[in-house]
């Protein structure tokens, strides 16, 4: 069948009671594990970090489903500005789309740039954002060459959590998860 839109199985994810439609059960599992780690501050058995990968940017159709999913899941509201993933055009929709999202660097320049330690690298390589420490200086934004950090309300960075909401709502498999080599 040529119909390539992915089947979505609704599943429940703990963070803020968000309901996500997940692309498949393995992705759903990863997300719920990650979310419960963040929520309970406990560390289950060691596992490899996973991060978003823009696997097939040339397959993007410009629906912006990923951007809506990101703001819907993380803010509850409808917004393009509050999305951590950005679909940019180059020469309008006649040109190619650019998918701009955090690469989950192993040595994240955004963390190094933050003068107050509001961005913290965890031992597994993930980066957490401590909003209460952030002064809104914007140095993290400048440090990221690919432009994956934008400043939202109160000039606080909108930082991708690699939760996978965008992956679930991409109808063309542009985005995937990858395991980070240790």
């Amino acid at each position: 069948m040529s119909y390539s839109i992915r089947r979505i199985d609704a599943c429940r994810v703990g963070r803020r009671g968000a309901d996500l439609g997940m692309a498949d059960s393995s992705e759903a599992k990863v997300i719920s594990e990650r979310v419960s780690v963040a929520g309970q501050e406990t560390k289950p058995k060691p596992k490899k970090r996973r991060r978003l990968k823009v696997a097939h940017p040339e397959r993007c159709i410009g629906c912006l489903g990923c951007m809506f999913a990101c703001s819907r899941v993380h803010t509850g509201n409808v917004s393009l500005r509050d999305s951590a993933i950005k679909i940019q055009t180059q020469g309008g929709i006649e040109g190619d789309f650019r998918v701009v999202v955090c690469r989950g660097c192993n040595d994240p320049p955004c963390v190094r740039a933050c003068p107050v330690g509001a961005l913290e690298r965890k031992p597994d390589g993930s980066v957490v954002f401590h909003e209460e420490l952030c002064t809104g200086c914007g140095q993290c934004q400048d440090a990221c060459l690919i432009g994956a950090i934008s400043l939202g309300r109160g000039s606080k960075p909108i930082k991708c959590m690699h939760c996978g909401a965008c992956v679930a709502f991409c109808p063309h498999g542009v985005l995937t998860f990858e395991e980070v080599p240790s």
Binding site: G17, L20, R72, V73, N77, V78, R81
Partner: peptide, 22 residues
């Protein structure tokens, strides 16, 4: 941006319609 009165209900309906669509 648009404030949604009930985030949970919104996401439920969104997911239902999204699934019907795809």
């Amino acid at each position: 941006h648009v404030e949604i009165p009930d985030h949970k209900r919104y996401r439920e309906v969104y997911n239902k319609l999204y699934q019907t669509t795809v």
